[in-house]
Simulated scan of single mutants.
Amino acid sequence: MSHTAHIPSHRKPRQRASKSALRAGVAGGFLSTIAVAGAAGPAQAEPVTQTIEMPTIASGFSAAAAASAQATQQLALDMERQADQDAAAEKAAKTAKKAHAEAVRKDEAKKKAEAAAKARAEAEAKERAERASRTAERTTLSASTGGSGSSSSGSSASASAPSSSSNVSGSAASIVAFAKAQVGDAYIPGGTGPNAWDCSGLVQAAYRTAGIDLPRVSQAQSTYGTQVSLDNLQPGDILYWGSAGSAYHVAIYVGGGQFVGAQNSGTGTVQRSMDYDRPTGAVRVL
């Protein structure tokens, strides 16, 4: 019996027998030829030889190309992203460097401003102290006026005067004359003459003309002698600013409500009225 006799009659006879197509995909689009034998009829089946052109694997290449393109695009995106990150990091570094430089500049400016403020405060303090030195320099008769004033007070001061001072009037006149002679000299911190002074250096040198050795600094000079009222001053008295024992400036009272003092580097040694900057206290050595 024929091997196709079992096929039901309602089905169409197989015009084309089973065709076995052996497909082998080769990446270059190779062609494969396969001989397929099929039964054409129920009994007599002649072998049929058919040449089939197998499709090339273009789809595989297309997928690979698409994947390659996608990978290339992704790589380009990654490189672009990295470049953006590098640029952002470089910009951030420049910004941080600039901010640091600005902070340093502001800190230096602040320190300079603080130093300038401190210098101004010190200059103002010395300026207040120098106000007792400039007015008497305008008159050449101040020395003689001071001498007469001192002579009238000689008896009252003699009790507290050092033994080295035998003539209070003469000593006071000598001190006042010396102080006035230095008006116009420069002010230098630590200066002791002969052409530049600080406040206590001038007072010490003036008293040395009367044979009296005073302490070197204003703090000690403000307690050397007897404390006297500012309403009862005599020429030659030592005026001080600040508290006794911790004075920051001293000058010499020259009579007529004026004093001579080495004030600061801006004004030098001057003569001024006490009303310009009233001292804190005074001591009498003579």
Rank of each mutant, 00 (worst) to 15 (best):
S165K: 13
A173W: 03
S160G: 04
T33N: 05
S265R: 02
A129Q: 02
G255A: 00
T145H: 06
Q227N: 07
G255E: 00
A132E: 03
K126F: 15
G242S: 02
T135I: 14
K19I: 15
E137V: 14
G245M: 06
R128K: 13
A125M: 13
E46N: 13
S218M: 10
G60L: 15
E102G: 06
T209S: 01
S62Q: 10
V26W: 15
P279M: 05
E122S: 12
G256R: 00
P8D: 02
T267P: 08
H100S: 11
A27H: 11
T145S: 10
L286S: 10
A101V: 06
C199A: 00
S169P: 05
S164Q: 08
A244D: 07
T226M: 10
G211F: 02
A129M: 07
V36H: 10
N195P: 03
G147Q: 15
I252L: 03
V168S: 01
A172Y: 00
L202C: 01
A99W: 05
T56A: 15
V36G: 09
H100L: 12
V260R: 02
A17F: 14
G184Q: 05
T226L: 06
Q227Y: 01
T192R: 09
G28H: 14
P55L: 04
I57P: 14
A172K: 00
V203K: 06
M54D: 07
R284E: 00
A5S: 06
T139C: 05
A172W: 00
T267Q: 09
D277L: 01
S9W: 12
I238M: 09
P42E: 10
T51M: 15
V250R: 02
D213W: 04
A115W: 08
W197N: 07
S68W: 11
S151Q: 10
S155D: 05
M274S: 07
S166N: 03
A205S: 03
A181D: 12
G266R: 11
K112S: 08
T192H: 07
S142D: 03
Y248Q: 03
L31N: 04
A121V: 04
M79P: 00
G193H: 11
Q221N: 09
K12F: 14
A58R: 12
A172N: 01
K110H: 12
L77E: 15
A136F: 11
V228L: 03
I238H: 09
S150E: 06
Q73C: 05
Q182K: 14
A181I: 08
R216C: 02
N167C: 00
H249A: 01
A67Q: 08
Y240T: 13
T51I: 14
P42G: 09
L141M: 12
A39W: 14
S229A: 04
T33Q: 00
G184F: 07
K106H: 05
E53K: 15
A113I: 05
A17I: 13
F30Q: 09
Q50W: 15
E90Y: 12
E53M: 15
P13H: 03
I252R: 01
V36Y: 12
R134I: 15
L286R: 10
W241I: 06
G25Y: 15
Y207H: 01
Q227P: 08
A143E: 15
T145V: 11
I34S: 12
E46V: 14
S133C: 08
V176W: 01
A5W: 12
R134L: 15
G257Q: 02
Y187G: 01
A251L: 04
G255F: 00
R272S: 05
